[in-house]
Design a protein around this nucleic acid. Structure first.
Lengths: 211, 211
DNA sequence: GTGAACAGACCAACTAGTCGGTTTGAAATA
DNA sequence: TATTTCAAACCGACTAGTTGGTCTGTTCAC
């Protein structure tokens, strides 16, 4: 493989355009023109414009779901698991920012058959978060007063919302953002006992500067 | 005004349809058919489909911005101000859920002239949040380790994300959600001293059940 | 009677998708 | 090695359907 295949070029170009102008703001003609391809080339690689949209969705959600599962398996305590999942989630923005923008912005336009597949994976992701929160409460690492569902959706919301403001060349690095998020989230979840546990609270910002 | 004016019927119908099918998933013909109007009636009340989209955006952002400013004026300490702003923000979902969905989903399709006006107000809203956080840190109510920008965007993100999951007839009431959000947010922001202050920490969930 | 509110047939532009044709590259054949 | 073959990859003019917006009226309130 000396040079990039047409299919990849189409996806890459479409991604850049979709991110900027939205799915409906970009025509197939524009995509193929911008990447030096043709209508024929496009429809040879994709059944339809919808399939391209689905493909973009699937690449991202599959990747991020895998990462979350890996993090869950790799670590053994709720706090560590949650921090690792969030960290991997934030880190995805480094590679998949345009995918995530399209994912969060255009999912409503997926044809039912495609939407179903994507939603199944999206639901799986949510369940992993809920599961970790549940285990955290059981282990008395997280406060029992919180609503698992609400806390989970808050976490997903604050991270996903990054697609509205995160700029890869902005002043904050991915690592800084991930650390700050984990600090905020843990402060809102951890019990007082857990905060006193050196091993658990090592993820908190306030402990970084201590001496 | 005995019966509802056409303009309002158009907006209401459009809102319901946009929320479900997206701005590009709904044609002007569909809107006027669904509310028993005509093309002529539509274009008598709106210069274009774009103007209708702008109108929906403006109604919501103007309302929520006012509410935030009111809350800021009404209360005098950072914690109270923040809680009131968040509370009002969440409460808006009760009336303006479709508006907010359109606002968060279709803003990218606003024509430049319209987008500019909306963005100015959106920016103002953000600045109010940042301002309260800044004052909270100065007053030593909020932890100095947090990044104002990141904490602010997190708050905005978690609340705005509600448009993806909040169902008016769901198991959680607006008030419950607002209270839970405030609990999570304050736990992540408040300093230890502030938490010990009875007046400030009265917003925390963990204090509700205490005796 | 006069202008605002509204109706609905009509139009021009745009766009996803098609279809017959051409290129290309590698395997099969001689 | 030279030649044929054949399917996959790709091209681009064309089409059929859709959709925002217009325009000529008609109705109705004051």
């Amino acid at each position: 493989m000396v040079e990039k295949q047409l299919k990849d070029r189409i996806i890459e170009t479409a991604l850049t355009l979709f991110e900027k102008y939205g799915y409906h703001g970009v025509t197939v003609d524009r995509i193929v023109a911008e990447c030096g391809a043709s209508k024929g080339g496009f429809y040879h690689n994709f059944k339809s414009k919808d399939e391209l949209l689905y493909h973009i969705h699937d690449v991202f959600i599959t990747y991020v779901l895998n990462k979350a599962q890996e993090a869950y398996v790799k670590y053994k305590t709720p706090t560590k698991r949650l921090c690792a999942i969030i960290h991997s989630f934030v880190r995805v923005f480094h590679i998949y920012k345009p995918h995530i923008t399209v994912f969060n912005q255009e999912a409503a336009y997926l044809k039912p058959a495609y939407a179903e597949k994507i939603n199944a994976k999206r639901e799986q992701y949510k369940q992993i978060i809920f599961q970790v929160l549940r285990e955290g409460i059981e282990a008395k690492e997280f406060r029992s007063e919180i609503s698992i569902e609400l806390a989970g959706l808050s976490i997903i919301g604050m991270v996903n919302w990054m697609y509205k403001w995160y700029k890869p060349d902005g002043p904050m690095s991915i690592e800084q953002i991930a650390t700050a998020f984990n600090d905020l989230i843990l402060h809102s979840l951890l019990t007082e006992e857990a905060k006193r546990d050196e091993d658990i609270s090592s993820f908190l910002l306030s402990h970084v500067g201590e001496e």
